[in-house]
Amino acid sequence: MGYTPPDINDSTLESILSLTEIPIILGSLDTAPIWLSVKLATVTTVLLLLIATPVAWWLAFAHHRVKSVITAVSMLPLVLPPSVLGFYMLLLLGTNGPLGRLTAELGLGTLAFTFPGLVIASIIYSFPFALQPILNAFEAIGRAPLEAAATLRASPLARFFTIAIPLAKPGLLSAVVMGFAHTMGEFGVILMIGGSIPGETKVLSVAIYEQVEALQYSEAHVLSGGMLVFSFVVLWLLHQLNSRRNAMKPVSN
C-alpha cells in the first residue's frame, strides 16, 4: 500500500504520525507527573481505606436517622462537577478559609497548592468510589455471620477483623482499585486546588492538559495512551475479580 505524506496543517494526522516518535519522546519524557500521580493515588487509597471502611461499617449496621443524610453527603462527589468541589475546597483550605486559618495557626501553612492539600481533596473526591464497594460488601455479608461469631464468644472487635474484613475482601479490593484509578484520573479538582507546581501538584492529568495547551500532541499522546491502557487494565482486572468472586460464592443453604 502506498504511503501518502500527511498534510502538515492537519493536526489530527500530524498527531497520528507523531506516534512514530514515541521512542524518542519516551527518552526525554518528564516522568515526574507520573510518579506524582502514583504517589498521590497510593497515599489517597491507603487513607481512603482507613476512613471508608469504618464509615461503611457504620452505614451498613447502624439504625440511625442521620444515616441517609450521611449517605447522600458521601455520594455528592459523584454528581458535583469537579470544579465546584475544587472551588469549595479552595475556599475551605485557602488562606482565608476556616481550615486554612487553622492549619496556618498550627504552623503548617495553608494546604492549598500543596501535596497534602491534594491528598485531602482526592480523599473527598474519590470517597464514594471507595465507600460503595465496601458498603455493598458489608451489606451482603449481613448480620448472620456476625451474630454467629458473637455466640462463639468473639468480641465486637474480633468479629470485625476475623469475620467482616475477610468476608468483605472482594469489596475492599474493589475499593482499592476504584479509589486508586479514580485518583489517578482526577483533574478538575486538582487544577482548582493544586494548580500545576512541578513536583508538588503537577500530576499526570494536569501535565497532559498543559501539553495539549502547548500543542505538544506527541507528549500528550504518550501520557494519554498510557492512561488509556492503565484504565483498561484496571477495569478488566476488576471484572476478573468480580467474576471469580461470583464463581466462588458458596451454594446457598
Partner: peptide
C-alpha cells in the same frame, strides 16, 4: 453482651463462616 453469655447457638441455616474450613470454623469458638 452475647459474646459473654456461656451459650451455644445453632441457627436454622447453619451459618458457618464461608471463608474458613470446617476445622477453623470449629476452632473459632
Amino acid at each position: 453482651p452475647t459474646h459473654q453469655r456461656a451459650l451455644g447457638y445453632v441457627f436454622q441455616d447453619s451459618n458457618l463462616f464461608s471463608h474458613l474450613t470446617v476445622e477453623k470454623n470449629l476452632h473459632y469458638g
